[in-house]
Design a protein around this nucleic acid. Structure first.
Lengths: 157, 157
DNA sequence: AATTACAGTGCATAATTATACATAATTATT
DNA sequence: AATAATTATGTATAATTATGCACTGTAATT
């Protein structure tokens, strides 16, 4: 039932899990209570313009051809923040992905702004880890950051 | 005969013509005097990391994922991954301990492989932190990594 | 309300792609 | 050069994906 819902669910699953064939997708959907046949999945994937790609290890997996939703670069931010590609949350943590070399600048900026809900940040080369203070949920964290970086956060949990 | 030449030719053909399946590719190659079986083409396309995409009209066609590069897949784990000492999981996090100076190389490699269950990685000098996406358990993470890095994980789990 | 039109689906099966296995070709080693 | 080791290929077949057809349900039309 409700094809549109299933299509959305598929898009979400493809972004978060490694799915290599219709059967795998079928069982993931079943876990969510959605029951469909392989034939319908074939049609769904065509509708969504999903393609099967081979990663560098030779393993195949499905990806959406139109990435859009979660990754994009924003141009209105200060120069040193323009390297931000995406922000995502999970539990008490947030991960900011940047173009290579920009993570430290972003982390430094966040430290300077000094947001009470954020306990600390750790920066690698292209990734910043945000650790929320205990009691702060990822939703709250997302809400707070969306004020600080209104144009960056478009999609989170 | 001369695999490399054939691979180059395939890249060229994919750029010039619309090719929708192995048989089409096979006959295009035949026109150029190159005779191969479908099985070999399947392997060639995997080597070249060609994927089949669906255009807006619903027609499928092969395209190179990395236009330009003629880099082939490296199935062996690179030397710089030999610096891994241990891998451990806890909650939604994983910690890879390496010999000093190797953490970045390992993290970079994992990023390149691009595993959907992993939200991000951060590398220090001898430690890589892995953050799983929400909903992914450390067990799942371990399972996934053991597939991707069989030669590493088997020693530690 | 009854009738028609059409999108969506499952089933069965066709079409396409991937792979195990055996062998040939190539490259490295002694 | 001879032999061993590695890589590439074909054959046969398995695995995966796509689709024709019949049927169902919903929406549109009268």
């Amino acid at each position: 039932m409700e094809r549109v819902y299933r299509l959305e669910l598929i898009k979400e699953l493809l972004g978060k899990r490694t799915i290599s064939n219709h059967d795998e997708l079928q069982s993931e959907l079943l876990k969510q209570g959605v029951k469909v046949t392989q034939a319908t999945l074939s049609r769904d994937l065509k509708t969504l313009r999903v393609s099967r790609v081979t990663d560098k290890l030779g393993k195949s997996r499905y990806v959406l051809q139109d990435p859009g939703t979660s990754q994009f670069i924003d141009k209105e931010l200060p120069d040193h923040l323009s390297g931000v590609i995406s922000i995502e949350f999970s539990g008490q943590l947030g991960v900011i992905n940047t173009i290579p070399g920009f993570a430290n600048a972003v982390a430094y900026y966040i430290d300077q702004v000094s947001i009470p809900e954020i306990m600390g940040t750790i920066a690698g080369d292209d990734t910043v880890l945000l650790i929320a203070r205990s009691g702060v949920s990822s939703n709250q964290l997302a809400g707070i950051l969306s004020k600080t970086f209104p144009s960056i956060i478009k999609k989170f949990i």
